[in-house]
């Protein structure tokens, strides 16, 4: 094996970060099995009561809602992102390519709070969407978008889109254009060529995009906090409430651990269910 003289020096910062992260996770894990002492920030004896309490319908409901919002967001982002990624890969004009890229990536550069407040302005009862629909006479009274799951999902799709588009574009760019040409030469219309060749060949990108979108959304905090306005609660919001409003650190820790476990479990399920597509493009 070749010697790598700089390996140690290069790996040290990452290793230190990893150690700190593991220590923090272990602290959370430790907190999650301690008793809450009301009026004190110090935890009490070891117990599993926190995890038992998670099974209460009130909390179980939040987990279910979070998973549902994540699934909706991942799916909606896929549907919205696929055409964008396709256009990004297939346009021949550098200008159009640059424009699509800039529009898609912008949400990543806006601060989370700024972006979320813009959505509040757009989604409000006198906001952009409702004003336009009212003006066009399509609705008689404003639709409730703010403080609803739909509103939260919309805002989450916005911030998840860059990741999805980049992952899909990477997958689409790897598909040899000769495949679509071959399909056309064999009598497939552009739509059928897309459905029978390009779409199946892009499944690795779809899986990667959906999986990442799901995990990315699971930890969303500011968006559901501000747009949900307390009426749409995700796990992060519950952790915040319990930790910083009730100062129940042990229970907040137990929620976090459960959230982490659930994310891994759901990702594992998605992976399991789609494994057969994995080998699709292996050459």
């Amino acid at each position: 094996m070749r010697s790598r003289p700089f390996l140690g020096a290069f790996v040290t910062p990452a290793a230190l970060c990893a150690v700190a992260l593991v220590a923090a996770l272990l602290a959370i894990l430790q907190y999650s099995v301690r008793m809450h002492v009301p009026g004190s920030l110090e935890p009490g004896d070891y117990t599993l009561a926190n995890f038992v309490a998670l099974l209460k319908p009130l909390y179980a409901r939040v987990f279910f809602d979070t998973a549902w919002i994540c699934l909706l967001t991942a799916f909606a982002t896929l549907v919205a992102g696929y055409p964008v990624a396709y256009a990004l890969v297939h346009t021949k004009r550098p200008f159009v390519k640059g424009l699509i890229l800039i529009i898609v990536v912008t949400p990543l550069f806006l601060g989370e709070v700024v972006r979320t407040y813009s959505w509040i302005i757009v989604l409000g009862n006198t906001g952009f969407i409702n004003s336009v629909l009212l003006m066009l006479g399509l609705i008689a009274s404003p639709i409730q978008l703010l403080f609803t799951t739909i509103g939260v999902v919309l805002a989450l799709v916005h911030v998840t889109l860059p990741v999805m588009v980049v992952m899909l574009a990477a997958a689409l760019a790897h598909i040899d254009p000769a495949y679509e040409r071959a399909a056309a030469s064999l009598g497939a219309s552009p739509l059928r060529a897309f459905l029978t060749v390009t779409l199946p060949l892009s499944t690795p990108g779809i899986l990667a995009g959906v999986t990442t979108a799901f995990a990315w959304t699971f930890s969303a905090f500011a968006t559901p906090q501000l747009i949900g306005g307390g009426r749409v609660n995700m796990v992060s919001n519950l952790v915040y409430q319990l930790g910083f409003a009730s100062f129940n650190f042990p229970f907040a820790a137990a929620l976090s651990v459960a959230g982490l476990v659930m994310t891994f479990a759901l990702l594992g399920l998605i992976r399991l269910g789609t494994r057969r597509f994995e080998n699709v493009t292996q050459h």
């Binding site: 000769a178 495949y179 040409r181 056309a184 030469s185 064999l186 497939a188 060949l201 493009t281």
Partner: peptide, 18 residues
């Protein structure tokens, strides 16, 4: 192309891998 009734063999063969 898809209505021209041609048969084409590509340099890379372009066999559908899936």
């Amino acid at each position: 192309t898809f209505q021209r009734q041609i048969g084409m063999m590509f340099q890379s063969y372009a066999l559908f891998p899936h």
